[in-house]
């Protein structure tokens, strides 16, 4: 990886941390549990890496097996996280 790419990556990381902190500070305490389950759901974005690892070659290998396990874990987060967040948010009424 060339240094330019690394610096761009780090820049994105730092800016996203600050932007995230600003957004999250505005979430009221009453929604902190859905915030956590919602974060679980989006951390399932690791599924992108898991898909690429599982399908990296035509033949089955230890790498595709590791990727397969990662797909399962990440999907649990995505599906479970979004569904339980939705279930909770539907309960909040005026």
């Amino acid at each position: 990886m060339d240094t330019g790419t690394i610096i761009i990556g780090l820049t994105i990381f730092v800016l996203a941390c600050f932007a995230g902190a600003e957004l999250i500070a505005k979430v009221p305490p009453t929604l902190h549990t859905p915030l956590m389950s919602g974060s679980n759901a989006i951390s399932g974005i690791a599924i992108v890496g898991a898909l690429l690892a599982t399908g990296h070659s035509e033949s089955f290998s230890s790498i595709s097996l590791i990727g397969f396990l990662a797909v399962i874990f990440a999907t649990i987060n995505v599906v479970g996280g979004y569904m339980v967040t939705r279930r909770m948010l539907q309960m909040f009424k005026k």
Binding site: C17, L23, I24, M36, S39, I42, I45, V48
Partner: peptide, 19 residues
């Protein structure tokens, strides 16, 4: 960072900041 994937970098930092 390792996969050079911005979606993962941004999303991870959102979750990290939230936690």
């Amino acid at each position: 960072f390792a996969l050079n994937n911005n979606a993962l970098i941004i999303t991870g930092s959102l979750v990290g900041a939230s936690g």
